[in-house]
Structure formats: C-alpha cells, structure tokens
Design a protein around this nucleic acid. Structure first.
Lengths: 339, 339
DNA sequence: TTGAAAGCGCTAACAA
DNA sequence: TTGTTAGCGCTTTCAA
C-alpha cells in the first residue's frame, strides 16, 4: 500500500548535490549552474521524483487549494443546490480559473450552523488558503465567521454589509431595465412581473429596476406575484397573475426556472408565447434553452463572475488587497423566442 | 496576514505536559488520565488550538481528502459536464458520504491527455488519498494511469476491462426491461427506441435489454434511431423515427434529455403523449420532472451510487480490499405522465 | 553559485 | 499512564 516515492534527499544524493540545490531547481529559482540544473532535472526525470505536498505546505504555509463553499439552510439543501444548473456554472467558472493557476477547489457544504462551525474549523487547520462562498441563505453568518478566523474570503453576490468582504455581483437593476425596455419596445402594455423574496438583495434590485423603468414609461403600477425561484412557484405566480389580470401581455420573471413555470401555465391556458403574452426570464441558465419556447432572458455571466471570484481570492491570498474589493458585472439581454 | 495559531507545543507547555500527551487527547487515544485529559482540553479550548493539517499529513501519509475527477474530452467539455444535472447528483452523493466520514472532495477536471498527466502528477504528490473518477469518454486511459501510479481508484460505471478497477454501476439491461414491459402492459404494439452510441457499455446494455424483452414478447424488430444523449439529438432521432414509422405508439429513449427532445417533436407534430405515443426516458434526472408531460422514466439512483463509490474508495484507502470490487445497483421505474 | 543546518508542527515508537 | 526522541520531506536563511 505504501505509495512513497523517492524524496528530495534521494535525488540530491544521486545527483551528488545538496538538498537545497535540488529544491532550487524544482522551484525554478535562478542562481543554479545550468549544468547542474540539467543534471538534477535528469535525475528527477529518471527517478520519477514528485515533491511531497504536505512537507512543502508545512514550511510554506500554502496549500494551493481553496475551498468552494455552498452555504445555506435546510436538510435537503445540498441535493437541491447541486442539481441547480447555477451551481454547475459556478463550479465551471471557478475550476476554469484555478486550473490555469495551479490551484484546486475543495468542495464544502455548510447547510447548518454546526456545519458552518466545522467548515471554519477545517479551514483553520490550514487546509486551504482561502474560501469562495456562495450563499443561498439570506444573512448568512459564514462570511463573518471566516473573516474572524482570518481566512481570506470572496463572496458571490453582495452581502448584507458590502464592506465586510470582497465579492462579485451583477448589476441586477440594469438587467431588469433591459427586460422592461424589451417588453416595451415589443409593444406590451399590460406588463406584470414574477418576483422573488425581497429579503434577497438581488431579487430586490431586479424588482426595483423593473418597476423604475416601467414607471418612467408611464406605467407606475406593475402587478407583482412573488415566487421562490422554483418552476412550481413560477407556475403558481402565473396562475395568480392571470386570475387577477387576464389581459396581461408581458411577464418578467426574476429567474428562468420561474419563467419556465409561467410558460407552462400560459400554454396550458391556451395563450400563445410570445404573441399573446411575452415572457422574459433571468440568468440564461440551461433551462432557458430547453424551455418551450426557448426563453428570452437576461444573461448573468455566472462563469465569468465565478472566475473573477477565484481571481480575487487568489489576489487576496497573495496579499494584494488590504481592503475588501467588489467587482460588478453587466447583464446582457439574450433574445430567443419567448419575447 | 499570518494566520498561525498556537501549536501542539504551546498547548503542551501551558498544560504542563508533553507534546505526546496533547497529541493523544487530540486524537482521542485512550490511556490518558481523565484529569489530564480535561486539563488539556481546557487549554485547547482556551487557546483556540487547531492541529495543523500539513504537519499531520506529513507523518500519517494521509490527507483525508479524495479527488473527484471528471474525465473526458473536448475543450467545451468542462462547461458542458458541469451543467449536466447528472454531475450535480454525483457531487451530491459523494459529498453526502464523505462529510459524515470527515473527508473532503477536491474537484479535478481532466479533459485532455495533458490534463490527465497533470492530474496523475498532482495526486502523486500525495495531495489526496484516492480518486473517484467519472469518465465521460469511452476507453478513458485515466483509470489505468492512476492504478499504475498506485493511487486507489473507484469508477462510476463499468470500464472496458471490469477487472481493472473497482466501480459501481447500474443494471442497465434490467432497467431497459422495466421500460419495455411497461410499454407492453400499456398496450403499445409499435414500439421504437432512441439509443445512444454503442461504444458505451451502458448504452449497449440498455439497447440489448430493451430488445431482448420485446423479442420475447414477439417483437423481434425494433426500430432504432441513435442519439448522443442531448435534447437536440433526441429530437432529431424522433423526427427520423416518425418519418420511417409514422404509426409508432411507444418510444424508449436511453436518457431523459433525449426523451425530452422526443416529446418536443411529438407535440409539435400533434401527437398526444401518452395517448398517441407513450414515451419513457432513463435516469430520472431533473428534466424528467420539468418536462411536459413529466416523464415516466427508469430511475438511476445516482446519489446512492456516488455514495457507494465514496464508501468503496474509503475502504480501499484503508486497505480493506486487495482486489477490485464492483457494486451493482437496481434500476426502478418511475411512472409519471408520459407513459 | 552552492551547502550546512535549522526548523515547519505533528505522530509514533520506545522507554520509563 | 506519560515523556523522550526521532523523524515525516521540504524550504530557507546564513555562510562559505
């Protein structure tokens, strides 16, 4: 079972040099005689030597690993979040950046207070150089716990107290404006929206941006039904909207899943999309493409944002920032068939 | 920036005992005087001591970390696989097992030969105690590379050479039989299937199992159109099937995504599901629920399988198996509206 | 440009 | 039951 290979010492002995010299060539430090450099490289190649990560970490205090933490609440939380296409895009963006910088993500789930304690504990052991956290929960205590433990942190989405930690976010209100304008240009005049819990900053911004745009177009009263980001809640909201406003001709949902739910209800009630009712979603997640009809939606560049998170964290680890930094991304309207 | 806390030595000094004693209580080893035990615990609590992972790993040769590797081919590979709901279920199952056994997964992507070399290299540094690999690619060389490097490995799905490495898999043929029987019981008599590339063992088994069941029911010639697991390919296959066999009344697709594509085409061509054509998918992935109509499908207990993978790997790491082990899971028919 | 030597923080024989 | 001691494999001053 022993998987131990040759050590630095073995290489040094075989090459007839000191451990320090081998270390230098392994780490690409200059001031090593080219001849010796080649000799050492040869011995390394020949012996199949691989530096031991633990030994190196012990002295450098670096692991080249960062934690990717999904923080939220609820027992079924983990299984739900992992099947959400959003999560996959985050992972993709994070991995995309890290792998080109020889770092690796370790996946952590913190679905309860106990789990959050454990996560902080784990990271306090020096297992990772920093943490990327995606909070599903409002008012997540984890970021502060991590900061208190002096662990570099970068968040996805603006936290309650924006000054607390570095984060990346989307210009949500601007994205909603794009949706509103598109509906207006299409000629929609009886526009409603399916919002999401207003305790979430992003949901608030989307609704505010949408309302503000319509208000300045002379439509101050927008019917609103609130969902909770799921297909079913979107369907329920659409039923409610249709009941109270049967003549609605344009709907903006705060995410694609709810837009999909809305589409299902509309079709079942015999409404043509977009002829009778135009629908716009938010995120440009994978369901936007598989939905019938394919959704016109506000694209959130999740992969890019996740990549930026990783970059930001890497910079923090290197001590490049002394203060929290935030990066804002622009939304973009993707026009497909639903509006 | 220094995040260094107190060390074992500090605790030992403050408690007035030796490092060994502190180590013993930290690791829960018996033979420690209860009084001293309590004293040490108190000092630990008070100083906020946390054992250093690197130092511990250096001597134990264990990291309590396993690699979760997604191996396949293609440049857009990573982004595609991460948005596939299947991947999320695997992650969920793996995390579910590991977290209750104080282990953690580090995510690795191996989309090219170069990347695979890097992965092996990385693991050879002793960064993880073993590897869980999910191959998207047929004839993936990674498992063998890992075994050659003496890294414990467990695979998702049977490899070409089943004796090569431990793996978990589904009884695919049995699952397909379930689908075939359900269609027969429904009264379908002109049954077709949308298969997947036959180079993939699972796809082969599903087709074989489906055909065998229908054959013994007196239907030896089943129309087959091949897709590649995507919605679009499923739609294309359905178009082909409908063109050559307009009177088809039952379709089994080798996965849910293709079944969804088939449903879209059927509805667009005015066929009612399941009255005119019954459709059955495979996997019971999230699209099975969001599809209209919701899909009757063969459930693959991915989370459970992924959990078993993690358990198997853990056992290998502990040296409990000297030979590769394989675990087979039963499929289960989930009846919804499409058939 | 190179080497000697001192740790990094921990575990695990072995003695006591 | 406890302590002493010898490393685990590497990086990094400091001298030479």
């Amino acid at each position: 079972m022993s998987r131990k290979g040759p050590t630095l010492e073995d290489v040094a002995r075989q090459a007839g040099v000191s451990r320090a010299t081998v270390s230098r060539v392994v780490n690409g430090i200059r001031n090593v005689d080219p001849g010796i450099q080649e000799l050492v490289r040869h011995v390394i190649e020949q012996t199949g030597y691989r530096p031991n990560r633990a030994a190196r970490s012990l002295v450098t205090q670096r692991t080249e690993t960062v934690a990717l933490i999904i923080s939220g609440a609820g027992d079924t939380f983990a299984s739900r979040v992992f099947t959400d296409p959003f999560f996959g895009r985050v992972v993709s963006g994070v991995v995309g950046y890290l792998r080109t910088h020889s770092m690796h993500p370790v996946l952590l789930v913190a679905e309860s207070d106990a789990a959050r304690e454990q996560v902080v504990d784990y990271l306090s052991q020096g297992t990772a150089d920093g943490a990327l956290v995606v909070s599903i929960q409002v008012a997540d205590p984890l970021p502060e716990m991590l900061t208190a433990a002096r662990i570099p942190v970068v968040l996805f989405a603006r936290p309650e107290h924006p000054h607390l930690a570095s984060h990346v976010d989307l210009a949500h209100a601007e994205g909603a404006r794009l949706a509103a304008e598109h509906l207006l240009v299409r000629g929609c005049r009886r526009i409603a929206t399916i919002s999401a819990p207003q305790s979430i900053p992003a949901a608030r911004d989307r609704l505010d941006g949408f309302r503000a745009t319509l208000a300045s177009a002379g439509m101050p009263d927008v019917p609103v039904a609130e969902g909770n980001f799921t297909v079913d809640s979107g369907a329920a909201a659409m039923v409610e909207l249709l009941r109270d406003h049967p003549d609605v001709d344009g709907v903006f949902a705060a995410n694609d899943l709810m837009a999909q739910g809305a589409c299902q209800v509309l079709r079942e009630q015999g409404k043509r999309i977009p002829q009778d009712v135009a629908v716009i979603g938010f995120d440009d997640s994978s369901v936007a493409v598989t939905c019938r009809p394919p959704l016109t939606t506000v694209r959130q560049p999740v992969e890019k944002m996740a990549g930026a998170m990783a970059r930001l964290l890497s910079e923090h680890i290197q001590g490049m920032h002394t203060e929290p930094v935030s990066v804002l991304f622009d939304a973009e309207l993707v026009v497909r068939d639903s509006a």
